[in-house]
Design a protein around this nucleic acid. Sequence first.
RNA 1: GGAGGGAUGGCCGAGAGGUCGAAGGCGGCGGUCUUGAAAACCGUUAACCGAAAGGUUCGCGGGUUCGAAUCCUGCUCCCUCCGCCA
Length: 426
Amino acid sequence: MLDIKYVRENIDHVRSKMEERGQDIDLDKFSELEQKRRDILQEVETLRSERNTVSKEIGTRKKNGEDASELIKRMSEVSGRIKTLDDSLKEAEAALNEIIMIIPNLPHESVPFGTGEEDNPVVREWGEKPAFDFEPLPHWDIGENLNILDFARGAKITGARFTLYRGAGAMLERALINFMLTMHVSEHGYTEVLTPFMVNRESMTGTGQLPKFEEDLFKITGTDYYLIPTAEVPVTNIHRDEILDEHDLPIHYVSYTPCFRAEAGSYGKDTRGLIRQHQFNKVEMVKFSKPETSYEELESLTLNAEEVLKRLGIHYRVVNLCSGDLGFSSAKTYDLEAWMAGQDAYREISSCSNFEDFQARRAGIRFRREETGKVEHVHTLNGSGLAIGRTVVAILENYQQKDGTVVIPDALIPYMNGVDIITLDK
RNA sequence: GGAGGGAUGGCCGAGAGGUCGAAGGCGGCGGUCUUGAAAACCGUUAACCGAAAGGUUCGCGGGUUCGAAUCCUGCUCCCUCCGCCA
């Protein structure tokens, strides 16, 4: 969330940033509620102050055996008024909270203005589209032809948007997880963590999924727990309500988790294949940094994700998400879009974001700056490195051959138990 | 599932209705000493709101009281023992 004080003092700037995002936030209501809250607060604090001093006086008098009944009677009334005011203060705070928690982050100055996906400028590209002397198939055909992806049985076991992987398909998924984790740990210096895949409400609120996006989540009946939509949630919340040591920053974590998304409102979109699933695997990088270095960290994070695609020889481009396409908690996001030959399209395969102090403020993640002795919020960042299912798609579609087999990229062969080509497995 | 015990500052830990934001220790920071360091000694060191005055915070919520870290109550989490179990 944004700093309430900052919003109050920079209301016009916040208003224009919300307009850039195309967000209709009632900031007048915010100001009104904020003022109300402060009015009540002032009144209640004056009364508390009185109660505190008089109560001490009562203590002193009693100790000296003097009469205090008059003071006690008066304070009894004051306490009653405090209680009433406290209730309305809580009401005012709750109302204010409702607004502040659904105000998205302010886009960074380097975020271009735009209203949607089509306005995202391409920052750079790498590699080339593979050439085919035949019509490349989409991965759902390749996968079914090779008997490594079974969409019908996935749907039978659970439902739409669930897939059964088989044989070399299952192994490919597992190899990619290992390949990415190993690379980020041993070459990029991340610390691997393995987290719970269900989290509580506080964790979801900390990273910004709640309260606004409840309908995108799977909730476990009979509990307060939700299935994670991304490792960002458990990993960022590792340090919730902590004051970190400045010398420990930056902290770099990498984590494999399955991700569960309800995909509400995406009916009819990407209904075939692995692109949009209710459950998919992902390797995620998460960083905690000092404010002054977070944008450098975003650049290196993005490069770390790109390196995976380079090693796999997959053509991709990097786009800078425009103001209208930016996620709720993010101040700036680079998306990596991999070329998928069978669909003749670039598809998002990684999303790398700097949240600045937006999540840290919600989640209470801070550090003490030695120079000033003061406590400050850290900046949090994260990026997919990469989405596993979509990487499988990119490999199947870009490495397919005329005879229907799929060549395994060299870098992945050591993780494939020596398999270098996927052929039909009956 | 049954029976007990616990939750206090960055960490450990005392405190059992009033002057307690909280003893003591560790850690951090500053200093004395030292060629330098260590040790020793001295000092200092919680967060949040507020321009300040002041207010809030001892797991979380409710209550009792003029006054609650301290009493009552509900909840959460942790630990020990028994049962069950991958």
